[in-house]
Computed example of a mutant assay.
Amino acid sequence: MAGHRIFGTPFAAIYPHYIAKAERKGHTADEIDHVISWLTGYDEAGLKRTLDDEVTLEQFFDDAPALNPNASLITGTICGIRVQEVEDPLMQKIRYMDLLVDEVARGKKMTSILRGS
């Protein structure tokens, strides 16, 4: 069975939407980069490389240095679906990232977004 079409979407195609969402709410690209780095383990150079190389979301997560061990503490609803109940591991990681971006845009404290780390 083929994966969801979002898996083949370049990370570079959704990243500007994450930034725009945060900036519309008075937050910065640095905050978005920080939560993405926290989740995936990418440093600034690695994140830039994924954008420049237009890697797919599937490759983005497959190549991620290290998914944060506290990622499982991310709970909440995105698009009406509870992230902790998403069965596909890749889709769950994508939803984790979406939820972190939403939390930044809503102005949640960074210590809370990063699950106390």
Rank of each mutant, 00 (worst) to 15 (best):
E54N: 14
T75S: 12
F61S: 08
G41F: 02
T28L: 01
Q59N: 12
I36N: 08
L73E: 14
E31S: 01
A66G: 05
N68Y: 07
I36E: 08
G46A: 13
D30N: 05
D62G: 00
L57C: 06
D62A: 10
T50I: 01
Y42A: 09
D43T: 09
L39W: 05
V35W: 03
H17R: 08
L73V: 03
F60C: 06
L57D: 06
A45P: 11
D33R: 13
E58C: 00
E23H: 02
L73T: 04
T56S: 15
E44K: 15
I36Y: 04
F60D: 09
N70D: 15
K21G: 03
T40Y: 05
K48C: 06
L73K: 13
L67N: 03
L51S: 07
W38Q: 09
N70R: 15
W38N: 13
L39G: 10
F61W: 02
D53P: 06
A64G: 08
D43F: 08
L57M: 13
V35A: 07
I19R: 03
Q59V: 14
F60G: 11
I19W: 00
R49N: 15
I32N: 02
R49Y: 10
G26W: 05
W38F: 14
H27Q: 07
T75P: 00
L51E: 07
R24N: 09
Y18G: 11
K48W: 00
Y42D: 13
T28Q: 00
I74P: 15
A71Y: 11
P16D: 12
A64V: 01
I19F: 01
D33Q: 10
D63E: 15
E54A: 12
D52Q: 05
T50M: 12
D62V: 02
G41L: 02
N68E: 13
D43A: 14
I32A: 02
D63W: 07
A29Y: 00
V55P: 06
K25D: 07
F61R: 02
D62R: 06
D33F: 00
R24C: 02
S72N: 09
Q59C: 07
Y15R: 12
D62Y: 04
E58Q: 11
E31W: 00
E58K: 08
D52R: 01
E23K: 12
L57S: 06
E58M: 01
I74D: 11
E44H: 14
Y15M: 05
L57A: 04
H17F: 10
A45L: 12
L39D: 13
E44Y: 06
L73Y: 10
A45V: 07
Y42C: 09
D63H: 10
L73G: 07
A66H: 13
Y18W: 10
H34D: 15
K21W: 02
E23V: 11
P65N: 03
N70E: 15
T56L: 02
Y15S: 09
P69D: 11
S72T: 11
D52S: 05
A64D: 06
T50Y: 04
L67A: 03
P16Q: 07
N70S: 15
S72R: 11
P69R: 13
V55Y: 05
V35I: 14
Y15T: 08
A64N: 06
D43P: 14
N70T: 12
W38S: 10
P69F: 06
N68I: 07
V55F: 04
H34I: 08
A66T: 04
A29S: 08
H17Y: 09
N70V: 11
F61Y: 09
